[in-house]
Design a protein around this nucleic acid. Structure first.
Length: 253
DNA sequence: AAACCCACCAACCGCGAAGTA
DNA sequence: ATACTTCGCGGTTGGTGGGTT
């Protein structure tokens, strides 16, 4: 059967966007909102595929984008998040207000990788380059997050389970994961001992949320978190358990 | 001034997940 | 349950500009 093409390629523009295209896309989204990317180009009078429109909006045209250089704090946060999540750029971007996954990915590949290498740290494993051959292990503790989500089972990541992607999967799809059940999850590839504590609310009133009510962190990165519901239709909703995680409080033990 | 190299980053591509009929 | 569509993600590519020779 095969995958159907995302658009009629013969009649679409490619390459750099013009000012006029940007204006059309921005005006259309301001008038009609995001979504329905497939039909958007036609409706907006653009000779682009929906995918291209989405990317242009998310990575460049969105009004809340920060742009400019990354701060030292952002650098360190990215490094910590990457050590936990791996190349889950969208999740990392969700914790950096005004930054996009593409931007962070580029920044990682061009700056942070080199920065870590110069510190003698392997950017993939986050282990000291000299330690590589010793093959030590990792413990990632999620108890605090799990305790915060009181109706959920304890979530514990322990040594001897493959890679950080398991942690990333748990964070991305918390309700699809087996959370602990007393069985250890293993991470033999890393030499980090990470612990995630309940969230730190930065000069913002704590919003009371009932158990089972989620927060969209895609949107939250734009302004502190909105309840998943009428205001948010994006698919980056992570649920209450993820909402309880605050990676700014990750501590290297 | 020209040629070359390299870093940066916007954009593309393919795939998998989620949603829908 | 299955086929198909749509969306979002992550890896990769290619154009551009700045620096160096």
């Amino acid at each position: 059967m095969g995958r159907s093409p995302c658009c009629e390629k013969a009649h679409t523009n490619k390459g750099a966007w013009t000012k006029e295209e940007d204006d059309r896309l921005t005006a259309y989204i301001k008038a009609h909102g995001e979504g329905c990317w497939r039909s958007l180009p036609k409706a907006a009078g653009l000779l682009r595929c929906g995918k291209s429109c989405r990317l242009r909006w998310i990575n460049y045209l969105r009004p809340d984008l920060k742009r400019g250089n990354f701060s030292e704090e952002e650098d360190e946060l990215i490094i910590k998040l990457h050590s936990l999540l791996g190349n889950k750029w969208s999740l990392i971007a969700g914790r950096l207000p005004g930054r996009t996954d593409n931007e962070i990915k580029n920044y990682w590949n061009t700056h942070i990788r080199r920065k870590l290498m110069s510190r003698g740290i392997d950017p993939v494993t986050h282990r000291g380059i000299n330690e590589q051959q010793h093959g030590s292990n990792i413990t990632i503790s999620f108890e605090a997050a799990a305790a915060a989500a009181r109706d959920d089972k304890a979530a514990v990541f322990r040594r001897d389970e493959p890679t950080t992607t398991k942690a990333a999967a748990a964070i991305a799809h918390p309700r699809q994961m087996e959370w602990g059940h007393g069985k250890p999850l293993k991470c033999p590839d890393l030499n980090l001992d990470l612990c995630i504590s309940p969230p730190f609310q930065e000069e913002k009133p704590v919003v009371k949320r009932e158990a089972g009510v989620g927060v969209c962190f895609s949107c939250s990165s734009l302004g502190g978190g909105i309840p998943k519901g009428s205001d948010c239709k994006c698919s980056s909703f992570l649920g209450i358990r993820t909402a309880m995680l605050d990676f700014r409080s990750i501590e290297m033990k």
